[in-house]
Write a protein that binds this DNA or RNA. Sequence first.
DNA 1: GATGAATGAGTGTTCATTCAT
DNA 2: TATGAATGAACACTCATTCAT
Lengths: 198, 198, 198, 198
Amino acid sequence: MRKKEGNKETAILEAAVKVFAEKGYHQSKISKIAEVAGVATGSVYLYYKSKEDIILKIFDQLWSKLSQELEQTIQRTDLDPVTKLDAIIDILFDSFTVNPALAIVFVNEQNQLMQQEKGNVAKLYKGFLDLSEKILREGVDKKIFNTNIDIILYRDFITGGLRALLHEWARRPEEFPLDQIRKNVKYIAKNGILIHHT
Amino acid sequence: MRKKEGNKETAILEAAVKVFAEKGYHQSKISKIAEVAGVATGSVYLYYKSKEDIILKIFDQLWSKLSQELEQTIQRTDLDPVTKLDAIIDILFDSFTVNPALAIVFVNEQNQLMQQEKGNVAKLYKGFLDLSEKILREGVDKKIFNTNIDIILYRDFITGGLRALLHEWARRPEEFPLDQIRKNVKYIAKNGILIHHT
Amino acid sequence: MRKKEGNKETAILEAAVKVFAEKGYHQSKISKIAEVAGVATGSVYLYYKSKEDIILKIFDQLWSKLSQELEQTIQRTDLDPVTKLDAIIDILFDSFTVNPALAIVFVNEQNQLMQQEKGNVAKLYKGFLDLSEKILREGVDKKIFNTNIDIILYRDFITGGLRALLHEWARRPEEFPLDQIRKNVKYIAKNGILIHHT
Amino acid sequence: MRKKEGNKETAILEAAVKVFAEKGYHQSKISKIAEVAGVATGSVYLYYKSKEDIILKIFDQLWSKLSQELEQTIQRTDLDPVTKLDAIIDILFDSFTVNPALAIVFVNEQNQLMQQEKGNVAKLYKGFLDLSEKILREGVDKKIFNTNIDIILYRDFITGGLRALLHEWARRPEEFPLDQIRKNVKYIAKNGILIHHT
DNA sequence: GATGAATGAGTGTTCATTCAT
DNA sequence: TATGAATGAACACTCATTCAT
């Protein structure tokens, strides 16, 4: 928020995303992040208390933002579950389109952070998944979504699939037009691979 | 005593999978791997030339084995594409069921290794995906699979979804009965979430 | 604070000379050099990129300085070859007198470094020897030095002899008064052991 | 002495000389010495109790042999001091001619071993030098050698000069014909560089 | 706040030495 | 004796973090 300081704080976070995306968290040096951010090494520690703190803030910010957006979608009464399902996908795609490096960091580092139970990553991510679950639950209740499918599993499955595609796209954006990916994902998530004769 | 007992070589690899699964590759110490394997630190270097070499061998072995199994499935003429699609899923599930830690390592480290272009990981994994593609292509040709879906994208999507579920399962096997996951995945991959009225 | 105080850089180099002189290059630990220099272990790597880099810099500095001094002597037209020959000896003695430890390092490590063709040691040393050769050549041309003697061999012989004496002196300065050594060397180099009746 | 075992013991020592000459003592691995000697790594320890023991034995053997030869020369009453001085030089040259690698090891490692006071190297070498001194002393007494020259210094000087030339020769035998070196050394040691008009 | 030189704990890797066979 | 796999102590080097300026 504050202009002057906020600039450096943000610059460091953005630099970190870039560096983490390229080298991976553990291979990234604080000095490199500082260099990319255009600040001195020591300055990083004015805004973040450790290297880990940086990546946790990245994920904090990511999932807070996505959860908030998803929340808004859920509350809309004018949309049916199918459209809301599409919306989840759109929220993720839109978010990472703006910042492909963030997609890479997400894909590469999230698991470990959750597994090591660092910071709030697991909790925040769970929050997002829970929101997704609500939408799915709503669809099931309205007999639009298949009751045979375990909603938790479906939710994780779709998120995992998305993650893989986002990663591919983020690494080679030119080979995988995002709109095509998005369209396909929406279709697959709903219909699977089989041809359904109605 | 004799080199080809292979006990120690294998013990180290298995220990590494466990340690990598628990701590992540970068946080894992060679001395810890040695300890778990029941050998001295230096002995690790009798069989592997570096820490990286260990993880690369893990992935080499993994994808070679899976590719080989998939190959056999593809060549069977008595199976239709749908059954073969199920087979891919089974192959992955069976493999990781035997060794949940391996699933975790796979999920956590594969991306980075591929991205940093270490060893043959990318090539071997591509080999596996290419085989999967064959099955999908066959289904498309036989008008069983939906032509609107981009096969490459579908393939990556499903693999990503599987990966996510395997990871969840590997971390908390008791909460996610593998058979239920397997059944759901097979269903979702084919039909998506929607109810299809035939 | 400022990089160019150079205090630390120099302190490390001087500490290294001391430690190398006492233990020999390979037995010397970076941590010991740091300790003697009064800095932290890691600080050594702020100024030198490796242990080898340190010893190479020592030799770089040594031969550059000596060559420069010798060059000045050669260019003097007021000195005859015999005096210039004495000057070579003086230059070496003066140099090592200031820093006996340096003499020891020189004697103990130079051969190996040259043989393994590390850095510029061989080149720089050759530069020094070439300058010495010029003086000898001048003496031969002026019929003052003996034509029967191969100049290259003489040059190497004298340098080797000097080296040995410097080493002895550096280890036990009190037993070998430097002035006596110097006087003897000058005499031997010119007249050998025999009594020449003129 | 014993044939079978003696072979291996000697093979190891000879291999060590070669390896030490090429890599330097500290960079030489026992496993490499064993390989060159054609024995197993562990076998080295059947004959030598440590790496250091090997190099000490090399020097033991070297100086014992040279001292013995020199002793015989000294005792000859039919030779004048000048001829005996030549003999010292011949003994050294002959010895290293047979085994140039030994010359390199001598030049590169002797100082350090003496300085660190390992084994008997210093004592044995001193024995050799003392014998040389006797010859010089004899020359002085007979008014053939110059009384102005400190014998100890002369002795060290000549030995150092020899060492340097032997090293050069051992590294590039083709460039420095040994006989020419030998002739020059003998001349320089006696007459120095100056032309003496008699 | 901002800097970047300084710190020193941490770890992959080597290799002399041992020892079961 | 002979082997060579196994050992584990040792050390160069890295880099997150601190702190004097």
